[in-house]
């Protein structure tokens, strides 16, 4: 039994059939990636997992516990937290207030302090900026804040939707270094990326999503060697 099991989900936007029988598993401590072109349904898949969208069919389980019908904040309470595409930090709140919101579900101040210290250790930059209004941060800092905010409850599974989007190459490397660091610390991660090359380097396994269906799933190593993946996603 995998830690996170997404099984045969179908998600619709009105009449648009955006996910067709998608199944994804993530084992404890694993980094798994979903790669796919624009509009393939990667974000839809993460939104469905987080409960923002309800699948019409299929089921989503965490350690065998059904999440499918839960509302988004309940899913966070179960330990599945998402860093959404485009960061979506609260721009009018300060950096510290954003982090507080990441810890909203936890009222144990001792635990919060511990998690906060861990996050600030991971992103020392956020400590310097703690009183600054988040909207004035640079793109890279905003991504750090988005990730730090999601880590404030020490989630069981972290869902990352295109963390490298819109960042300069140096910063992309930083973000991937952080993902590696989180992985080494034992965090379970489901990573959605356009940058397939980097994603396959950190992940142990990957799924290829095409027009709402999983067309391929294999170990990262095999995917990197796969003819179709090389052509379509690695630009070779």
């Amino acid at each position: 039994m995998a830690m996170l099991e997404v099984e045969g989900i179908h998600t619709y936007y009105g009449l648009i059939h955006a996910l067709k029988d998608v199944s994804v598993n993530v084992e404890e401590g694993e980094v798994v990636t979903i790669i796919g072109a624009n509009g393939a349904g990667k974000s839809t898949m993460l939104k469905t997992t987080s409960g923002l969208l309800k699948p019409r069919k299929g089921s989503i389980r965490l350690n065998d516990e059904e999440l499918t019908q839960l509302r988004p904040h309940k899913i966070v309470e179960k330990g599945v937290v998402q860093v959404p595409e485009g960061r979506r930090i609260f721009g009018t709140l300060t950096v510290m207030e954003n982090l507080d919101m990441g810890a909203f579900i936890c009222t144990n101040s001792q635990k919060n302090k511990k998690n906060l210290n861990r996050v600030l250790e991971l992103f020392p930059r956020l400590k310097e900026r703690s009183k600054q209004v988040a909207g004035t941060l640079s793109g890279g800092e905003q991504q750090m804040l988005a990730m730090g905010r999601a880590l404030m409850t020490n989630p069981k599974v972290l869902l990352l939707d295109e963390p490298s989007m819109g960042l300069a190459p140096v910063l992309v490397d930083d973000i991937f270094a952080t993902i590696r660091q989180l992985h080494d610390a034992g965090t379970t991660i489901l990573l959605v990326e356009q940058n397939a090359r980097l994603a396959l380097q950190v992940a142990s396994r990957g799924y290829v999503l095409q027009s709402g269906s999983v067309v391929l799933s294999d170990t990262a190593e095999n995917l990197e060697k796969n003819e179709m993946v090389r052509e379509a996603y690695l630009g070779e």
């Binding site: 987080s50 966070v76 937290v81 609260f90 999601a150």
Partner: peptide, 16 residues
């Protein structure tokens, strides 16, 4: 204030 700014992101942070 978070909800005023972004409902979806708030929900993803565990805010009802």
């Amino acid at each position: 204030r978070s909800v005023s700014e972004d409902k979806e992101a708030s929900a993803l942070m565990g805010i009802d």
